[in-house]
Amino acid sequence: MFSRLSDKLQDVFKDLRGHGRISEKNITDALRDVRMALLDADVHFQVAKDFIARVKDKAMGEEVLRSVTPGQQIVKIFHDELTTLLGGDAAPLNLTKPARILVVGLNGAGKTTSSAKLARLLKSQGRAPQLIACDLHRPAAIAQLATLAEQVGVPVYQPQAGETDVLKVGREAVAWCDQTPGDVQIYDTAGRQDLDEPLIEELRRLKEFLQPQEILIVCDAATGQQAVNVAEKFHAALGLTGIILTKLDGDARGGAALSLREVTKQPIKFAGVGEKIEQFEQFYPDRLAGRILGMGDVVSLVEKA
């Protein structure tokens, strides 16, 4: 239904340029279209609403109104606001000893893959990661992590088949880590839904025991409006310290990332960009901002406006 938001914005701003001055009315009209386009990119409706209000505030500012190129100014405000919102202060991982990273999230988000990818990344940076399989739930979850660990070449703790007590596994894993060379422990947990109270509680207890420095939520870039509920629930239960956004190699616009940022106020630390173990990178806020707005190159858009 929507042409790319960039086309939309171009039209809107060409229109604005026609007016000698920008008025509240024509900005409001323009922003209404932009809001729909944000919703179409899976930005949560409340987040979109607040965001538009902020942009409008700035756009109505003196500077913009007096500028000779108000349209360009507004595009820039958009992009900058979005980048700020997505960026935050992306601190590096806190890896003071004993460095423990707990990886959590919904079913199928990409936790196991991302755990192994993170191990690979840390290894390439000279650390000695250890992988710990805490998913006792999904069939062959342990085998999956073990296979990936072998590919990466890092030691992996595999609980006994049939074990169901995650806390017990946590205790045993910590003891195993002490005996095994390594300086950062990555715990892969079972996928769970945010409404599943017993499973969320299980995670809370595991966190209490491990006292991890980092609790990273893994989220699929194609997540819709429920990203807010998910972030609220996991954050309230665990106190998240960061976000891993996966499957960015697809064409999902990734509006869910805005929800995760708004709710948790925690940085998006990494991006999964493919199924292969090396397809994992640092997160670039301005790339995702451009993607959510549907425009790759904001600078050239500004020039055309």
């Binding site: 699929d220 819709g224 509006g255």
Partner: peptide
Amino acid sequence: VDATTGSNAIVQ
């Protein structure tokens, strides 16, 4: 299709 998927489900 995952029920938590947003607008991308249609493209999929």
